[in-house]
Design a protein around this nucleic acid. Structure first.
Lengths: 159, 159
DNA sequence: TTGATAATGCGAATTATTATCAATAAGAAA
DNA sequence: TTTCTTATTGATAATAATTCGCATTATCAA
C-alpha cells in the first residue's frame, strides 16, 4: 500500500530504523478497518510477537501520527482510537450504548465551513467532528428493554 | 439567571441538596466567559472557599452536566474544559500554540448535516466539532520566530 | 431540634499515557 | 562478515486527570 511507501521514505529521510515492531503495528492497523485503541492494537500485535511492549505500541503510534500515517481520534471516551490515514475526510458517530463507531462524510464542512474559518485568519491543522448518541439497533433494544444499556452512562436525559 | 432557576427545580425534583459548594461552582462558571478546566474552577472557588475539595469540584461538574447546566468539552488536550450550557449551538477552534479557544457557529451542521444523520436512524445526543490549528497572532509570531512556540507540540508538519 | 441521609473532604485507587534507562538490534562502514 | 554507532526496545516507574471509599458534616423535612 501507499502507506508502506510513505513509511519507507519517511524512514529514509530521517534517521529512523525499520523494526519488526513498527512493521507489525502498521500491519495490524492496515488489516483492520476498525478504530482500534492502543490496548486492542497491543493485543493483536502480541499474537505475532508476544514480547512487544505496550510502551512500544504507544511510541510507534505517536511516530506514525507524526509521519501522517495514522490519525488519532478522541471519541468521547477516556482513551484514543487510531486508524490509518484516509484520503477522504470523514467524521465519526459513536453509539453511547454499544460503542459502535460509524463514519460519515460531511462535504458542507470542507466546502463552506472550513473556508469560512480560514478566511478569519485561522490556520487549520485538524478537524474533528464527533456525534454521539444511539445507533438504530441500540434504540430498538433500549425501548424494548431487552438489552439493558449495560455500557457507559445511559445519559438519556428524560427529565 | 435561568441557570439558577433550572438548578432550583432540578434540585427539587430529585432528592438533591443545595450546598455552598454547588452555588460557588455555578457562580464561578457563570461569571467567567472562558472555557475553564477543573483545576481553574477549583482555584477560583478556593478564593471564596479555601476548604473545598477538588473531588467536590469534579462531582459538582458531573452533576451539572447531568442536569444540563454545564457542557464538557475535550478540546484535544488531556483534560476537559467546561462552560455553562448556551442556547445557541456553537463549536470550538483551539490554537495549538497559545491554547486560545475561539467559538464559532456552523449553521450548515444543524441545518443539513444533523438532519441527514438523523435520517439514517441515528439518535443524536451530542455534537462536538473541534478545529485545531494556529490563531492569527501565533501564525505571525511563529513566522517571525519572535515568540517560539513554547506550548504543547509544535506539529507544524513541514515535511 | 432532631433525624435521616445527601454531600463533603481527604486520601487512596484507577486509567491512560509518558518517561527512564539499561539492554538490544538496525544498518552503515570497515 | 564483523564491527561500531546509536536508534529502538522492554520493563517498570512516574505522571496527570479523574474517580472511589469512607468517616464526618451539613441540608432540610418533620
Amino acid at each position: 500500500m501507499s502507506n508502506q511507501i510513505s513509511f519507507q521514505s519517511a524512514i529514509k529521510s530521517r534517521n529512523l530504523r525499520m523494526t519488526n515492531q513498527r512493521r507489525q503495528v502498521l500491519r495490524v492497523l492496515e488489516e483492520s478497518d476498525e478504530h482500534l485503541d492502543a490496548e486492542a492494537i497491543y493485543d493483536l500485535v502480541r499474537k505475532q510477537n508476544p514480547r512487544i511492549s505496550l510502551a512500544t505500541v504507544y511510541r510507534t503510534l505517536a511516530l506514525f501520527k507524526e509521519l501522517g500515517l495514522v490519525n488519532e481520534h478522541k471519541l468521547g471516551e477516556d482513551h484514543s482510537h487510531f486508524e490509518t490515514a484516509q484520503e477522504e475526510p470523514h467524521y465519526h458517530f459513536t453509539c453511547l450504548s454499544c460503542r459502535k463507531i460509524i463514519e460519515f462524510s460531511a462535504p458542507e464542512i470542507e466546502e463552506t465551513l472550513l473556508p469560512r474559518i480560514a478566511k478569519q485568519g485561522l490556520e487549520i491543522n485538524e478537524v474533528h467532528l464527533i456525534i454521539s448518541g444511539y445507533c438504530a439497533d441500540c434504540q430498538a433494544n433500549l425501548i424494548e428493554g431487552k438489552k439493558q444499556c449495560s455500557s457507559p452512562r445511559p445519559i438519556h436525559n428524560q427529565n
